[in-house]
Simulated assay, not measured.
Amino acid sequence: PTYTVTIPASFELTGEYGQQYSGSGTIQTGKVFLNEGEKIVVTLTSASKFNMSHEGAGEYKLPYTAEGNFGKLTNKETGGKVAEFPTSTEPASAGISFTTDETPTFAGKYTDPVVFGISIEKEPS
């Protein structure tokens, strides 16, 4: 098997004052060559359970939700699957977006590192 998966290095959430903020990006692959019945699965997790920390003291947390090709990640404890890619002779892509669950209370920068997992799984038979 050979494949390349490209994940955006960062996402910026923007919005109007007094409203929720959002941002999006694209997960991309080159040509994907896998064994028969296999697929690439991309998952997303966050140690903070999808809560961005304010740049100040970090006491204020801003919850957010991630959404991929399988809908919104509703289990913030474990994260979940955001994309799948089968064998393909052409590059492929999958969109991913992030939206704050509430309107930010304080101005400033908010951050949260997320971890993308890449694995090969067997298709159900």
Score class of each variant (00 low, 15 high):
Asn75Leu: 05
Glu38Phe: 08
Ala107Val: 07
Lys76Phe: 07
Thr105Pro: 01
Ile120Leu: 11
Tyr110Trp: 08
Thr4Asp: 09
Gly23Cys: 11
Leu73Pro: 01
Tyr64Lys: 09
Thr43His: 01
Val115Met: 11
Ser125Met: 09
Thr74Arg: 15
Thr78Val: 09
Gly23His: 10
Gly71Tyr: 08
Gly37Thr: 03
Ser48Gly: 05
Gly15Phe: 04
Ala94Lys: 13
Gly56Cys: 04
Pro8His: 03
Thr4Ser: 10
Pro8Ile: 04
Leu73Asn: 02
Ala94Leu: 13
Pro124Asp: 12
Pro113His: 07
Asn69Thr: 09
Gly117Leu: 04
Gln20Val: 12
Pro63Lys: 01
Asp112Lys: 10
Tyr60Lys: 10
Pro113Trp: 05
Pro1Lys: 13
Glu123Ala: 07
Thr43Tyr: 00
Thr74Phe: 09
Val32Ala: 04
Gln28Arg: 14
Ser48Ile: 03
Gly18Tyr: 11
Pro104Ser: 05
Lys31Cys: 03
Ala107Ser: 11
Leu34Trp: 04
Phe98Arg: 06
Ser24Gly: 12
Glu121Gly: 07
Leu34His: 09
Thr105Met: 12
Thr65Cys: 04
Gln20Gly: 06
Ile7Leu: 06
Leu34Asp: 07
Ser93Arg: 10
Ala92Trp: 00
Lys49Ala: 12
Gln19Asp: 15
Pro8Glu: 04
Tyr17Gly: 09
Tyr60His: 11
Glu38Leu: 04
Glu59Ile: 14
Thr74Asp: 15
Gly58Met: 08
Thr99Asp: 03
Pro113Thr: 13
Lys81His: 14
Ile7Gly: 01
Glu102Thr: 08
Ala92Val: 00
Asp101Ser: 13
Val42Tyr: 06
Gly95Pro: 01
Phe85Ser: 05
Phe33Asp: 12
Thr103Met: 05
Ile96Cys: 04
Ala83Leu: 07
Lys39Val: 15
Leu62Ala: 07
Ile40Lys: 00
Gly30Tyr: 03
His54Phe: 06
Thr74Ser: 15
Pro113Gln: 12
Phe85Gly: 05
Tyr17His: 09
Ile96Gln: 04
Glu123Lys: 10
Asp112Tyr: 11
Phe116Pro: 00
Ile40Trp: 00
Phe33Ile: 06
Gly30Met: 05
Leu34Gln: 05
Gln20Arg: 13
Lys49Thr: 08
Ala66Phe: 14
Gly23Arg: 10
Gly95Ile: 00
Leu44Cys: 13
Asn35Leu: 09
Gly30Asp: 15
Phe33Ala: 08
Val114Tyr: 02
Ser88Tyr: 11
Asn69Phe: 00
Ile118Glu: 11
Thr65Trp: 02
Thr78Phe: 06
Gly30Lys: 09
Ala9Glu: 10
Phe33Val: 06
Glu102Leu: 01
Thr43Ile: 00
Val32Asn: 09
Ser24Tyr: 04
Met52Ala: 14
Lys31Leu: 09
